[in-house]
């Protein structure tokens, strides 16, 4: 039986909500996300500005290189094209790294307080959403600066980005609990990040991928986010159902699988930290 699903009998006058209602879980989630922010930025004088400066410099240098030095004549505005790929990938790699180590990073809480442990990897992913939002804001600024216009398909971006967050939560649930039992998992995750970098169409487009391999790309939600983002931002068209449906299924399926795997392995977490 998992700790999270314990429902304990409570006197009505008790200060605790029976079996941890949604109110407490949200409050706990919020506190964990805030904790991550505060710890990261408290000791820096520029604080959250660093999260702005880093991607800004990265995007600026990319734009310079791929417009002045190595423009790609086959792809108009190659720099923005690359940024559309990099932003979802960055969120993938940052949130997966943070999610994988989340249980060990929070071991003083996991070992000594009884609380639903699945909240930790999810909080780690959500804490990274701030960076994701900053990068999205910068991406949109670059897109507009390159002369693209806002179009009525932009709301689709919210949908695909939400799906990416769902996908990352599911992956992190699995990798975090596996990392408790086998500390090598984090290195596997790091290695797989490098592989993923080239399996996501960042420097190339889906059209350049041979037809028979395309299904693999469609089943990879991160690749699908990249393609959908380009469709909406650069080509002014809505993402195709053939793109959205597999992406939604894989993302939600991944979250469901993550919860199941986590529930199965949760029992001995505290003893293995």
């Amino acid at each position: 039986m998992s700790n999270g699903s314990l429902s304990l009998s409570l006197p009505a006058s008790s200060g605790l909500d029976a079996g941890r209602g949604g109110g407490n879980l949200l409050f706990l989630l919020q506190n964990l996300v805030l904790k991550d922010f505060r710890i990261r930025y408290r000791n820096m004088s520029l604080g959250v500005l660093w999260s702005f400066a880093n991607p800004l410099v990265m995007m600026g240098i990319l734009t310079f290189v791929f417009t002045r030095i190595y423009p790609n004549p086959a792809v108009p505005n190659f720099a923005v094209f690359i940024l559309c790929g990099l932003v979802p990938f960055n969120f993938y790699s940052l949130s997966l790294n943070a999610g994988t180590t989340s249980l060990l990073d929070n071991q003083s809480l996991v070992k000594r307080v009884r609380c639903p442990r699945r909240i930790f990897p999810i909080a780690a992913v959500l804490a990274n959403c701030l960076h994701f939002l900053i990068q999205i804001a910068l991406l949109i600024a670059f897109v507009l600066a390159f002369g693209y216009r806002v179009n009525r398909f932009w709301p689709w971006l919210g949908v695909v980005w939400m799906l990416e967050i769902i996908f990352m939560s599911g992956l992190s649930l699995m990798t975090s609990v596996l990392d408790v039992y086998y500390r090598d998992v984090r290195y596997l995750v790091e290695a797989s990040n490098a592989v993923m970098f080239w399996l996501v169409p960042i420097f190339y487009s889906l059209e350049m991928v041979p037809q028979r391999l395309r299904l693999l790309y469609l089943l990879n939600p991160i690749a699908a986010v990249v393609v959908a983002g380009r469709d909406v931002l650069l080509h002014g068209k809505p993402p195709a159902p053939a793109l959205l449906v597999p992406m939604a299924l894989v993302s939600v399926g991944c979250l469901a699988l993550g919860l199941v795997v986590f529930g199965r392995l949760e029992r001995n977490i505290a003893d293995n930290l």
């Binding site: 409050f27 904790k35 809480l109």
Partner: peptide, 15 residues
Amino acid sequence: ENVMLNASLLGLTRR
């Protein structure tokens, strides 16, 4: 901040 975090870990709601 630690009081808030701890209280939420122990099962209290925000209110």
